[in-house]
Each structure stands twice: as structure tokens, then as C-alpha cells.
């Protein structure tokens, strides 16, 4: 009978490392998207990746790394909290932009900013 526990232990760290690495990669993808994408709605889509997927992956990696400790419980609470708040914040920002009348960019021409339009009306 092979003792499986040591292998599981190694697997835990490998998984933790993979999750941390994946989270970091998504962070970078999100950051590049924030800088490179053409308009507000596309950028917020990129920011959403960093907000939820990358952070949750990073926290999951840290939880695996710390094992059954109090730290893991705290990290789980942080993850739940972020999982609730981050999408809500993204939604609120996008919703506010939509309500303010910001049009998404379709094609090559940038639609005018609602602020400038208001100035024109006055």
C-alpha cells in the first residue's frame, strides 16, 4: 500500500503555484486590455477579468498554499467578499456610464462624449 499523502501534499503546492501563476497571467491580460482596448465598455470588460477571475484565482492559490489554517478561513471570507463586490462595482460603473449617455464605439469613429454634447446644447 503506497502512502498517498506525501504526493497529495506535493500536488497541493503544484496546484497552488499553477493558480497563482494563472492569476498573475490574467492580471497582466487585464492590465494590457485596460491600456489597449479602444473604448470605455471594452476596457471595463478587461478590468472585470482582473477584478474577479484573477483575484479569485490568486486567493484560491494562497488558500491551497496555506492549508487548513485560520489564514485560509480569512482568505475564503475575502474571496466571498470580493466575489460579491467586484462585479457589483464593475456593474455600477458601466451602468453609470450608460445612464450618462456614453455610447460604445462602433466602427472607427469615436462617438462624442456626453459632456461635450451637453456643452454644445448650452
Amino acid at each position: 500500500m503506497i502512502d498517498i499523502m506525501p504526493y497529495l501534499e506535493i500536488l497541493r503546492y503544484v496546484l497552488a503555484g499553477a493558480l497563482l501563476f494563472g492569476g498573475a497571467v490574467f492580471m497582466i491580460i487585464g492590465a494590457v486590455g485596460m491600456l489597449r482596448l479602444p473604448d470605455f465598455y471594452a476596457r471595463i470588460h478587461a478590468a472585470g477579468i482582473t477584478d474577479t477571475l484573477a483575484t479569485v484565482m490568486l486567493i484560491a492559490g494562497m488558500m491551497l498554499h496555506s492549508g487548513f489554517t485560520q489564514t485560509t478561513a480569512k482568505l475564503a471570507l475575502v474571496a466571498i467578499f470580493l466575489f460579491l463586490t467586484s462585479p457589483t462595482a464593475t456593474h455600477a460603473v458601466a451602468n453609470a456610464a450608460h445612464k450618462a449617455g456614453l455610447k460604445p464605439r462602433l466602427g472607427k469613429v469615436q462617438p462624442p462624449h456626453p459632456r461635450d454634447k451637453m456643452k454644445g446644447a448650452k
Binding site: 460579491l84 457589483t88 455600477a92 451602468n95
Partner: peptide, 16 residues
Amino acid sequence: NHHIVLQVVAKILIPI
């Protein structure tokens, strides 16, 4: 009511 998502989440979060 376009704040409904915010309101639901806030109702969960504020007690916490």
C-alpha cells in the same frame, strides 16, 4: 430603478 443590483448587494453587505 437602475440601482437594483447595487441595492440588493448593499443590503447583503451593510450588516456584514
